[in-house]
Amino acid sequence: MSMIHGGHDDPDAAPALMVGRVEEWQPGYVDSHLHLKHQLMFATQGVLHVATASNEWILPPSRAIWITSNTLHSVRLKKPALANVLYIQPDALTAPDLGECFVLDASPLVKELITTCTQFAWDYPLDSRQARLAQVLLDQLSEVGQTPVSLPLPTDERALAVANAVKTDPGGRLPLTDIAKKNDTSARTVERLFASETGLSFGAWRQRLRLIVGLELLAYGTPVATVAAEIGYSTSSAFVAAFRDMFGVTPARYFS
């Protein structure tokens, strides 16, 4: 990972209300870590995978992710990515209450504000134009829509083993009974654990995984027909309908 812009090595130590930098990532894995400040990341190129102990999020271009201060998280990349990253003082500004992490729709105004705030020097005063623009950005974040691209993970070892098995083959059609047996448990146990630990039935969780994988493939420019086939849909129209049910718009609209 390399820093493209920024006046300091450690954004947590910067005195300004909100500071930022452009970061360039190569394929790989950034180990679990935390920041003393809130983070707001907006991928301008590529796709970021952000994970905590209990959940995973995917960040395609045109969306931003909020990471609350002191949230232990990791980042994974399959291909190179470029992102604007902001670090926000948790006790200096009124920040939106979005839980530990959440992916947000980035309106043109929010995108422009993120880009602008990323370029600020890291020592501007509280009563400056920069501080006022930072506050405008936070005000805008409380108004934008939230995108359901998280994948909650079970904590029980049996259910987590099943989840990891399905993640290796999201388009597979093996029934739960067989997957559970391969992982030394039962379908009934898996269903119970998924319902209690993720809030989703196993079937709903599996469908969400497929659509999140589909979202990632689309973000890399894979044609809809190819995506549908790779994640287990018999037709493109079936995939588009499921995508619209989950994300509220068609794939074309999502990335517009």
Rank of each mutant, 00 (worst) to 15 (best):
A219M: 02
A242R: 14
A43D: 15
Q146L: 03
I212C: 11
H73L: 11
E157W: 11
L211K: 07
I67Y: 03
V136W: 14
G171F: 05
D12H: 12
G248V: 02
C117L: 11
S107F: 06
I88R: 03
S2P: 10
R210S: 05
L151I: 10
T198Y: 01
A241S: 12
A195P: 15
Y87M: 07
W205R: 05
A204F: 00
A81N: 04
F255M: 09
T235F: 05
R21M: 13
C117H: 13
Q146C: 13
P27V: 13
V190A: 04
R206E: 04
I58V: 15
V50T: 12
N70Y: 03
Y254P: 01
L141S: 05
L109N: 08
S236M: 09
F239I: 08
S128W: 02
A64I: 05
D97T: 02
F42C: 07
N55Y: 01
S234F: 09
A64C: 06
R76D: 03
S237T: 08
A13W: 09
Q119G: 04
R132N: 10
L217G: 14
C117A: 13
I179T: 15
F243E: 07
Q146H: 02
L160Q: 01
K37R: 13
R173W: 10
T235N: 01
A163P: 04
A159D: 08
R76E: 10
D97N: 11
A14G: 11
R76N: 15
L211S: 08
A16N: 08
W205I: 01
L86I: 12
A228Y: 12
M18D: 05
A187I: 05
V75P: 00
R63M: 13
F255H: 12
L160G: 05
N55W: 00
L48H: 10
D97L: 11
V136E: 03
F102Q: 09
Q146W: 01
R132W: 07
M246D: 12
Q140P: 02
G6E: 14
L200M: 09
F247W: 14
P11K: 09
E157Y: 13
L93D: 07
S62G: 04
W66N: 15
A131V: 03
A225R: 01
R132H: 15
N164K: 14
Q135D: 00
L109C: 01
L133F: 03
L104Q: 12
H5P: 08
A13S: 07
G214A: 04
